[in-house]
């Protein structure tokens, strides 16, 4: 039973992976970027769990910077994805410009909060 379930899980992952392989490269880059941001945030959370929350504002700005970037990247991904008919009329360049602008504003706030 246990064996079959692990095999099922392997099958499931393999199916997922092959399905994902069909994703366009630009979306994959964005995914990679999101992963990078999330992992960076995770490492900071681990750090804060280990040593205590002393420069709490720095911690918050670090984590929120990563999370915010990740969210913005996800938004970019939604807008760039051609499958989403909702954003059909929106040029990907326009979406990228929004992404850059939002990131700049976000990081201005982050820097201000960093202390």
């Amino acid at each position: 039973m246990a064996r079959s379930s692990s095999k099922d899980a392997q099958d499931l992952f393999r199916a997922l992976w092959s399905a994902y392989a069909a994703t366009p490269t630009n979306l994959k880059i964005i995914d990679l970027y999101v992963m990078f941001a999330v992992f960076t945030a995770l490492i900071q959370v681990v750090y804060i769990a280990l040593v205590g929350s002393f420069p709490f504002n720095s911690f918050l700005s670090g984590v929120l910077s990563c999370v915010g970037t990740a969210v913005l990247a996800v938004c970019l991904r939604i807008q760039v994805n051609k499958e989403n008919k909702e954003f059909k009329d929106l040029a990907p360049e326009r979406a990228f410009a929004d992404f850059v602008l939002c990131n700049l504003v976000l990081h201005l706030v982050i820097m201000n909060f960093l202390g």
């Binding site: 992963m35 992992f39 900071q44």
Partner: peptide
């Protein structure tokens, strides 16, 4: 240095 790891991974 650990925070650099995801960037390298990226």
């Amino acid at each position: 240095s650990l925070t650099l790891l995801p960037f390298i991974g990226f």
